[in-house]
């Protein structure tokens, strides 16, 4: 492969990632704007949701989700820096995979708690919004986890290019932003 072709591919991958992220932003923003519109238009949905007892039951989900996502972001950054310097990769490259699994598991646990408390999706628009917003995020995180797993597997021979890891890091950054938006908009406002 000539250097010119390689540079083209990197440029295309960069552009493709930004476009993909832009599309994801629009998707999550649309879901989120639906939540905002419903909540703003509701006369019975004025109490901060944080005050509801069920929210306290799923606090571990909020905390663990945040930690896992920060971990995935930071670790992918370290992974990229190691790849850039040619340093040998460690078991740490598997951490994004673990983080994604952690988020999925935490979400399952929280959803289970919601269902047991009688706050399933059909109970209210508030509960339905929680399921859709956090569920869409969990799917996004799972998708990122699958890509990270694939690349970690390839990386046993240090094959994952630096620009690919930079793109993965951007993806985790977006997931973090989406998650913080959900936490702020749904739990604290």
């Amino acid at each position: 492969m000539t250097p010119g072709v390689d540079a083209r591919r990197t440029r295309a991958a960069d552009a493709g990632t930004w476009l993909f992220l832009a599309s994801l932003v629009m998707f999550y923003a649309s879901l989120y704007s639906g939540y905002v519109l419903l909540r703003a238009g509701s006369e019975t949905w004025t109490t901060p949701w944080l005050a509801r007892p069920i929210l306290w039951k799923i606090q571990p989900f909020v905390v663990s989700n945040t930690l896992w996502l920060v971990l995935a972001f930071v670790n992918t950054r370290q992974w990229r820096l190691a790849a850039a310097s040619g340093a040998p990769r460690s078991i740490g490259v598997w951490l994004p995979t673990m983080a994604a699994s952690g988020v999925a598991l935490a979400w399952t646990g929280a959803a289970d708690a919601m269902l047991k408390a009688g706050s399933g999706p059909a109970a209210s628009v508030a509960a339905a919004s929680w399921f859709v917003l956090t569920g869409a995020l969990a799917l996004g995180v799972l998708g990122g986890g699958l890509v990270a797993t694939w690349w970690a597997w390839r990386d046993r021979r240090s094959e994952t290019p630096v620009h690919a890891l930079r793109q993965l890091q951007r993806y985790w950054g977006l997931m973090l932003v989406v998650w913080f938006s959900i936490v702020v908009g749904m739990y604290f406002v």
């Binding site: 998707f27 649309s30 999706p121 059909a122």
Partner: peptide, 25 residues
């Protein structure tokens, strides 16, 4: 297509939930 279609996808998710999960979006 890239920037506008996600809005319809989000709407489709809401409507699917209304149809199959009994929500009331």
């Amino acid at each position: 297509l890239l920037l506008a279609f996600p809005a319809l996808q989000a709407a489709a998710v809401f409507q699917l939930m209304d149809r199959v999960a009994g929500t009331s979006f």
